[in-house]
Design a protein around this nucleic acid. Structure first.
Lengths: 243, 243
DNA sequence: CGGGACATTGATTAAGATCAATTTAAGTGG
DNA sequence: CCACTTAAATTGATCTTAATCAATGTCCCG
């Protein structure tokens, strides 16, 4: 296969204009409001604000929209019939949410805001129409879904094969890179989620998360105080994270 | 959202004619050889046979084709730069393979045959052209990718939140259902993968897999002898598997 | 300034990993 | 077809990691 099939930069979603005008939106082609005129208007797409702790959607909800997270952050949580819960991701601004509903038309996950957040609602019907109208957009959308799948597979490897130290190191490196990709400092940032959420995401218990943080701090790899994190030795963390 | 958007039966890929003529193929519309005439010919699609233990593709390979598994079974294994490996799935006849390469055009997984197997190679370029030509096919393809993602998320929950007993029970129930979906007995079947493979898939060690099998046998939930498995109490397994 | 959610640390326990020894099955070549 | 070789599976004994139980500390917000 020649590379012209994939001419787009690999990070499909990156730095996002926080202002949220459609003209500068990285997703403009995927989203594309019905008329160009509409796109020029300040609020061409219906915004949906979600308060900290509230759900953008829940497992069982019918698929109406996908959502582009414009500001804030969320946790995505898959649940099963016996009430087990697993946090699969902590999306930040620029992430496309709701793909979990594409298979059946019913959401299989909850999306809960970690802080007050803003999203653009992209009606799924329109989005598919856009895929149909523009083959490039269609291909891009395939890649967006596949991206989520690959991310999920990497997390599978983390949960299946790594020790707790390695898991947390891996999580911190990923988070640091996510911060960098969004124009924030990769060295010093605030974790928006609780220790409980981190523990759940990494298949461990809250006390273990605390202990590993303490250990990493003792080893001078980072400085942590509640949600405030400063990474002192990314390379050591990277080595520790197995990959 | 009305359900007419999702009129298709939820299991996208099910019972597969093992013979492998294109006319009766469940994927015919997605695949669709360039001309109808070609489709009527016995070998309209290039077949690719893979011997037990050999790779259909490997991580790092460029994306040329997706593959429809027509006969046999495989293990899909994601690897990272430090050589950690995690088996993400054990596809059987009817599964579509290779989606891991869609994001970047490079495969991130190995697909290894568990037994001598046969696949149809679907050139990805043609497949995208088919999506473009027929909007229904495009939507179906979105669902196929999303299906894999949802499956991956369920496994995430298994690895993150279940005990070893629950994980193996869950695996056996899934496998049993997969057998039923393909027209085999859901009560009595042969596991094509090694204990090592099962252990890797479920984030445990081979000795633990053996011990759990022994325990389930002692509890009269199943009878197991090497690869031959007979399930005696599906309901108990289902209860144990948390969902 | 007081209550409640969140975080941390210590002591103990338990689940599963590791280490070790056989057993069984499946090939393979004579 | 059989003896031999090797991969896979099983079971036991012990050890380690992380879970559990428990207590205390800290921060945020009304």
């Amino acid at each position: 296969m020649d590379t012209t099939l994939f001419p787009l930069p690999t990070p499909l979603l990156s730095r996002q204009s926080p202002a949220g005008d459609c003209m500068s939106c990285v997703m403009a082609r995927l989203c594309r409001a019905p008329s160009e005129e509409a796109c020029r208007a300040p609020a061409a797409r219906s915004r949906r604000s979600v308060r900290r702790g509230e759900a953008l959607y829940r497992a069982g909800d019918a698929l109406h929209n996908l959502y582009l997270l414009r500001a804030g952050s969320m946790k995505i949580r898959v649940t099963n019939t016996s009430g087990l819960e697993q946090i699969t991701a902590f999306p930040v601004a620029g992430s496309l949410l709701g793909l979990d509903a594409i298979e059946t038309g019913i959401h299989t996950c909850d999306a809960i805001a970690l802080e007050d957040s803003v999203t653009c609602a992209l009606p799924y019907r329109e989005l598919e129409a856009n895929c149909e109208r523009d083959a490039d957009v269609g291909r891009q959308f395939h890649r967006l879904i596949a991206h989520d799948m690959n991310q999920c597979q990497r997390l599978l490897l983390t949960l299946g094969r790594m020790t707790t130290d390695e898991r947390l190191a891996s999580f911190l490196v990923d988070t640091s890179e996510q911060m960098a990709a969004h124009g924030y400092s990769p060295r010093k940032f605030v974790l928006k989620m609780t220790r409980e959420d981190i523990a759940n995401h990494l298949g461990m218990k809250i006390e273990t998360v605390c202990r590993v943080f303490s250990r990493l701090q003792s080893a001078s790899l980072l400085h942590v105080s509640k949600r405030h994190l400063e990474i002192l030795d990314v390379e050591a963390l990277r080595r520790m994270s197995c990959g």
